[in-house]
């Protein structure tokens, strides 16, 4: 397996958000996590990426046979974990190309590969840009600065393609995307799918899952996975909403 989350509990400012998550992801699998607002979806993504605002109070996360929670965020990235941010940060003054070159070469170094020289790097970048139907003027622009919502998300997927991760977490990558951008992003992901790479897709809506068909769908509610199924579960959620599930887990309601 790539990732094994056991009984993970995490809090922010002493408020418990994750209340015992269990999830196992094997190589090549695509998992989707759905759930209403405030259920803890983005917290899970942030904890996995190593954001220090969150405190893990109990449980464990094993990533490629290592204790993930023990690794610094940059080491997680170099080991092949990628988070596509829901709200990518704008960084004025750092060009996308320079940033990516530093990033890709750090990751390559960690994996025992030669860093790319300028020419090789440009070649690889151009190829991935085409994949995401992005203009190469992207590269000279400051990272995410003044990018539209769609451009930011495409830039995230572009970075994902460049960094060649084994596990990609897409945190509401579909939010703020129009239908064309959604298709392009999904195609980008689909082209990267293979028997080695795994994905954890966090989304509100079933729409993205029309394009990226998941192997498993989990419903996160009040910090716990309350139901797991296949892609049909997503369709059912789209049709019926989350309320019917809430009533299926009365114990949680009572706790609340």
């Amino acid at each position: 397996m790539i990732l094994e989350i056991k009984n993970l509990c995490a809090s922010i400012d002493e408020k418990e958000i994750l209340k015992g998550i269990n999830l196992t992801i094997n190589p090549g699998e695509v998992h989707a996590i759905m759930g209403p607002n405030g259920s803890g979806k983005s917290t899970l993504a942030s904890v996995l990426a190593g954001k220090s605002d969150y405190e893990v109070t109990s449980g464990s996360v094993t990533f490629k046979n290592q204790d993930l929670l023990d690794l610094d965020p940059e080491i997680r990235a170099r080991e092949g974990l990628f988070l596509s941010f829901q709200y990518p940060v704008e960084i004025p003054g750092v060009s996308t190309a320079n940033f990516l070159k530093a990033s890709v070469n750090e990751v390559r170094k960690h994996r025992g590969l030669e860093p790319y020289d300028a020419m090789e790097f440009l070649k690889v970048m151009k190829k991935e840009l085409e994949l995401l139907e992005m203009d190469k003027s992207f590269l000279s622009r400051s990272l995410n600065e003044g990018f539209s919502g769609g451009e930011k998300k495409r830039n995230e997927i572009f970075q994902m393609a460049m960094l060649d991760p084994v596990l990609s977490i897409l945190d509401e990558t579909d939010s703020g995307l129009d239908i064309d951008a959604l298709r392009i992003v999904a195609e980008g992901v689909n082209k990267l799918r293979n028997t080695e790479r795994s994905f954890l897709i966090i989304t509100h809506y079933q729409r993205l899952l029309d394009y990226i068909v998941p192997d498993f769908v989990h419903v996160l509610y009040q910090g716990k996975i309350i139901k797991t199924g296949t892609k049909e579960l997503a369709l059912e959620l789209e049709e019926r909403g989350y309320d019917w599930l809430k009533s299926e887990v009365p114990s949680l309601e009572e706790v609340q």
Partner: peptide
């Protein structure tokens, strides 16, 4: 230095130190 920006760069494999350098240089760049 913006902590969110540092985390963003770290999540892409860049060390805290390099992230700080990159962001500080970016500040001065204009």
């Amino acid at each position: 230095i913006d902590e969110e920006a540092i985390f963003y760069l770290r999540s892409r494999g860049i060390s805290t130190k390099d992230a700080m350098s990159m962001l500080t240089l970016a500040f001065a760049e204009d």
